[in-house]
Amino acid sequence: MPKHIVSGLKYLTAVELIREGLSQKEVAKILEIDRSTVSHYLNGRNLSWNSIEVAEIITKFCPKDFLTLTYALLNDSEKTRVIVKTCSKKSYKGSVEESCIGCGLCVDTCLLNAIVLDDLKARVDSDWCNGCNMCRDVCPTDSIKILEVNNGY
């Protein structure tokens, strides 16, 4: 069953990446699947609609659950990043206050590798942040704020 959910998530990601203009070859490379599988996905073959439905439900979980569940299913940081970021519809902006002590706990916690330390201060890369807030939860000095950004409005 977990295998099927992963397929569903990969399907959703493949469809979205193609929509964004990537070629089938590129999508196959990113998701580490055969090019023919991408083709099958796009034609709705070799995949049960149930798997897709379950995957769709997962993408609608709160960002933290979506991320941790996907990571648990794939156990692969890079693919988790692509799937979660591609299937997340919302954008987030992280801001870090001066009270940050640069302990790096957020860096080590972030499953999307969206945080780096610059001169003992954390910096959140909005391109990768999916708003899971795990960084905020572990921060010992409550220095991180993650806000949802209203796209295009």
Binding site: E98, S99, C100, I101, G102, D119, L120, K121, T141
Partner: peptide, 10 residues
């Protein structure tokens, strides 16, 4: 010197 305000303060 440090650029970190929190370290400077502490």
């Amino acid at each position: 010197p440090t650029k970190s305000k929190s370290w400077e303060k502490q």
